[in-house]
Design a protein around this nucleic acid. Structure first.
Length: 641
RNA sequence: GCUGCUGUAGCUCAGGGGUAGAGCACUCCCUUGGUAAGGGAGAGGUCGAGUGUUCAAAUCACUCCAGCAGCACCA
């Protein structure tokens, strides 16, 4: 006898094993109809799975969140069957569920074409209509390998061979077709519904390793119903409108051109935004005890060899040979330069922690396929800083850095920052003992700071473990912004030391930190976050004064002058156009405030304020309007409240 | 870097073996109009670059460059 416990707290005893479907049926016919899987002690399983022991059990219906995962998983299987039906000889590899959808990687000589997606989708709909049941079979490992090999499915055979010893070989059959799979699955193909769509084609390396052959990946999305699918597709379209590359062009912020791949041409408006970011960061750094420095853009190659950068990143550095045949490299980082500044002149323990900050333009020859608007460029400005300290100061300094970064992001409206902890990579400098210490120190610090983090194994910098502060762009892609790294290696390699109270030479620890990270990338993220509608303090043009009739132009100029004096970035529109036209144009240009004046305002000394996104305007005395704008345009770190 | 796709006017895009088209933007003229497009006229392109096929290439083929999506990479 065994007992099943249900979500509502009730319990029932059973003498013989019972399947999920039987259980659902025993509760109610309607539940059985909606049931698509069970959850046993919190883990999903097939509806056909037998329950024979004490456990908590829950019937999963199609309305649940778990259903989405199952639908997408099944859709991947169905897509694989469809592809193999239409393109015999194609090998299947893996096909997992991802956020908002699924993909499957195929091995096939001939490339798929975009037009093929519609055919595959049509075939999928046929398979759905057949309503073939998904059934689980446990196969003998050797037989399974032989079976797949016989059919030319070398990748699947490899996957089975790679299964840990003692693990079952689970095969799910759907009609004629079958696949190796952990499951669980829906009861049958029709249960996935018809709300799916194949979206894109791409290449992807077998097992994620660029030394392996490239497979062909087909991405799809699947939802519970058409309205969910429609909403998702519409959101995708909306997100594309926020793309900073598109907005950058429309708002005249920056551009790229063929001669400078991965290099930004900042236009006056974009550069204004950029300068606001720098100004803000300078204030924050100053307030936190940093001093700003500037180090050379180009340094002798030997320095990069000593630091270890050459060994790891030599191929990604821009170099130049001078007429006297010295080889120089454009700096890909500021740290070696900052170490030189630290080394210049004897440093005492009294100087620690020493915090050097720089807005340095760094140059990295990024692979062509990695370039992406402002997010990934070959020349970018790092707001990076290096804290030289003693080992017993690491924790306290890291906690301060973390607090600073979080507070900075908060000022920009980013409250959902994710933090990843990346530990030692394969290719690294320094002994394991040093790595043990630096990883432990950083971990200790973030835990002390009370930050939630996830582990990113093996993704640390070559000289030390790192925290990555990650934000998401409009289309859901993640980008690293800030970082904090504990480095017990470079200072020693570059010969930095300080004098201890005992009068001994000691190697300092270096904390690498970047708050914005890349200013270019941060600007890109900001633009997407606000869909171009920047908060007043950041907007390149904060106010446009627009006159209704040319008799009001003189008054308009006075308004401009007053705003200028108040430090508001203002433009004036005296063109011979109707006010509708001017309002439309500046609204589309995402100017936060349009100050309109006609003869009425000129006579009364007022102004009509129209804020971006609002349908109505407010007429108020000029001085009052300016005061309100000045208050709002104050950067968050300078506000009184 | 790899796979697939794309490259025509400032922007968005149509066209397609017989030496180029639309809308918006731009310039000029008329219009002085009260909160998201007043009217008219005009100007603007070696069709990404190179090579080849052809009587003829923006159109076809190849190479390169750049961009887009994804993968790999990201100090």
């Amino acid at each position: 006898m065994f007992t099943l416990s249900f979500p509502d707290g009730s319990k029932r005893d059973y003498d013989a094993p019972i399947t999920g479907l039987e259980l659902a049926n025993s509760i109610s016919k309607s539940l059985a109809k909606k049931a698509i899987a069970i959850k046993r002690n919190g883990r999903l399983d097939d509806l056909a799975a037998a329950l024979g022991e004490d456990c908590n059990v829950e019937i999963v219906t199609r309305d649940s969140d778990e259903a989405l995962e199952l639908i997408r998983h099944d859709a991947a299987h169905i897509m694989a069957e469809a592809v193999q039906t239409l393109f015999p000889g194609t090998q299947v590899t893996i096909g997992p569920v991802i956020e908002n959808g699924f993909y499957y990687d195929f091995a096939r000589e001939e490339p798929f074409h975009l037009e093929d997606l519609a055919k595959i989708e049509a075939q999928m709909r046929k398979i759905v209509q057949k309503n073939a049941p998904f059934t689980l079979e446990i196969w003998d490992r050797d037989e399974a390998v032989a079976w797949f090999k016989e059919r030319g499915e070398d990748y699947k055979a490899e996957l089975i061979e790679a299964l840990p010893e003692g693990e079952e070989v689970r095969i799910y059959r759907q009609g004629e077709w079958l696949d190796l799979c952990l499951g669980p699955h829906l009861p049958s193909t029709a249960k996935i519904g018809t709300s799916f769509k194949l979206l894109k084609l791409a290449g992807a390396y077998w097992r994620g390793d660029s030394r392996n052959p490239m497979l062909q990946r087909i991405y799809g999305t699947a939802w519970r119903n058409d309205s969910e699918l429609k909403t998702y597709l519409r959101n995708l379209e909306e997100a594309e409108k926020r793309d900073h590359r598109k907005l950058g062009r429309e708002m005249d912020l920056f551009h790229f051109q063929e001669e400078g791949p991965g290099s930004v041409f900042w236009h006056p408006k974009g550069w204004t935004l950029f300068q606001q970011l720098i100004g803000y960061m300078r204030r924050r750094q100053h307030g936190a005890g940093y001093v700003e420095v500037n180090s050379p853009d180009m340094l002798d190659k030997s320095l990069w060899v000593t630091s270890g950068h050459w060994e790891k990143f030599g191929e990604n550095m821009f170099t130049t040979t001078t007429p006297d045949e010295r080889e120089f490299a454009l700096k890909p980082m500021n740290c070696p330069g900052h170490v030189q500044i630290f080394k210049n002149g004897l440093k005492s323990y009294r100087d620690l922690p020493m915090k050097l900050a720089e807005f340095g333009k760094v140059h990295r020859y990024e692979p062509s396929g990695a370039l992406h608007g402002l997010m990934r460029v070959r020349h970018f400005t790092q707001d990076d800083a290096h804290i030289f300290c003693a080992e017993d100061q690491i924790t306290a300094e890291c906690v301060k850095v973390n607090d600073l970064i979080i507070s900075i992001y908060h000022d920009f409206g980013f409250d959902d920052v994710r933090v990843k902890f990346s530990d030692r990579p394969e290719k690294r400098v320094g002994s394991d003992e040093v790595w043990d210490r630096s990883e432990a120190a950083l971990k200790h610090a973030i835990d002390k700071a009370g930050v939630k983090w996830t582990l990113n194994p093996g993704e640390g910098a070559f000289y030390g473990p790192k925290l990555e502060y990650v934000l998401r762009d409009a289309i859901g892609r993640d980008w690293q912004l800030g970082t904090l790294q504990v480095d017990l290696n470079l200072p020693g390699r570059l010969g930095a030391f300080f004098i201890t109270p005992e009068g001994e030479k000691h190697t300092p620890v270096m904390l690498h930190q970047a708050n914005f990270g890349s200013l270019e990338r941060f600007a890109g993220i900001l633009i997407e976050h606000h869909a171009g509608r920047m908060p007043l303090w950041l907007a390149p043009v904060q106010v446009v004064v627009a006159t209704i009739v040319s008799e009001a132009d003189d008054y308009g100029r006075k308004v401009l002058e007053a705003l200028d004096k108040a430090g508001i970035r203002t433009e004036i529109d005296l063109r011979n156009e109707k006010i509708n036209y001017k309002v439309r144009e500046h609204s589309m240009a995402k100017v936060p405030a349009i100050l309109v004046c006609g003869m009425r305002e000129a006579q009364e000394g007022t102004i009509s304020v129209r804020r971006l996104g609002q349908k109505y305007q407010k007429v108020m005395p000029l001085a009052e309007a300016i005061a309100a704008l000045v208050a709002e345009a104050t950067p968050p770190d300078l506000r009184e409240d």
